[in-house]
Design a protein around this nucleic acid. Sequence first.
DNA 1: CGCCTTTGACCTGCGC
DNA 2: GCGCAGGTCAAAGGCG
Length: 503
Amino acid sequence: MDVAVERPPLVKEEKKAETMMEIRTTPPIVFESFPSTQRVDATTNKDEKLEATKAEMGEVREENERLKTLLSHIVRDYQSLQMHFQETVKVKQQAAAADKLPAVAPVEADVPPPMAAAADDLVSLSLGSGGYARPKGAAHERTSSSSSGTETDQDDQLSLGLSSRHSNEGDDRQQASRPSAAAAPLLNLSSDSSADDAAQPRQPLSTAAFPPTSKARKSPSAGVDGADEEVLQQQAKKARVSVRVKCDTPTMNDGCQWRKYGQKISKGNPCPRAYYRCTVAPSCPVRKQVQRCADDMSILITTYEGTHSHPLPPAAAAMASTTSAAASMLLAGSSSSSHGHHLPFASTGLLGPTTISTIASCPTVTLDLTAPHSLMQQQYASPYGAVAAGYESKALPAAWSNGYLAPYGGGLPYYGKSSLPAMGQHFGMGMATTRPDQLYGAAHSSSYLQRSSSVGVHGPAAPAPAVTDTIAKAITSDPSFQSVLAAAITSYMGRGAGAAAQK
DNA sequence: CGCCTTTGACCTGCGC
DNA sequence: GCGCAGGTCAAAGGCG
């Protein structure tokens, strides 16, 4: 199944768009560096540029160190939390054992059944990141049991994709045909319901949540029983990820194949909303809605629902991973705080221009990839009620989001080779191809562009120190985000190594 | 010929 | 119960 193949017209458009992009974006950088009126000072400028670049390198290096420190801090925190959790569970377990007859389970086992069950709960709450960097075996047990796949536990934990696992058959197929670089993203979206979903903790969101056809919806008898399906549908409706990006084309090419099945004029927006269904696999439940922003027609709002039931091409995995991670963060937030609170990482603008926020009545993550100084700074109400409040976020440089998103896409060998034109406006790498001049706006200098592009897949550019502190606070105050971030970082490092190995 | 888009009709959920 | 809006279906037509 070669799902990565784009339809010819699209490819042509993208190639053209990219060429245009190069033409459009290159000159400003050159002009800023060598103004035609000051050619005499070319050498001086060169020296200055060199100095500036050196200074930037120094800054980046410092920031790198800072991030390393931060990472080690995260790991320490995680381990202490882990230990704390285990102690708590042990205490709980001893209490339970005291209550029950002494004939039941011995307490000294590393992972006795009750412990394993409790670990399930924990991992579910922490968005499937449990196995990663986990010193003990509990998470590994959970991981292997949840995936039933053949990959190593770590691989599984590193995955952050939308690939759902409907069945063993699907698993096998997925494991077998998954591109090595895609690294099998799976971030379990079931976390949201960990409390009341214990009966089927590993039920993928998409399977029951988005029946392939409305007929299945109308006759909800297949598979799960009615009540369970209802619960799952509700969960699924919670996992919506909206992506705002500057995009001139009718749709954002996210690597998947979509078939349009409807279009509707929605209230409050003169632009029609288009409904697409994933056609990579006939039974894939994933749908997306595409609509232009009423405030700024150049902004394309793409909302994803559900998880793919098939292997994804790396290009699609990039987007899927990101949306999945965002959805998972959202679900993590909703699992820890009941209603209507902004997620910590959202309120701090941790993803930089990619802002994430939600309201409980219709939890939608909005990844805002438009420029920090664009219209997004106005209060923006998405069609689904999510508020991408760029103005209330301490937006980070776009490069931060590049750094965050690139691991899923930019670091993949897929992008680095002949498929480059096809990626067009792919998420992540798409940041560079989607009118960077608009994306970064006049407030971002060419040196900034250079920095973000030079940093690229090697790592996120340095946020301002104050923002770093904010990030650190957000990270240290939200265990679930720690988990997600840890998984993301590990995924990033893994992919980076993989990409390097391919060269 | 097969796949895709278009588009009007229909279904469903929600607020009043 | 009614109306509205969002979401989906499916027939018809276009395109490669």
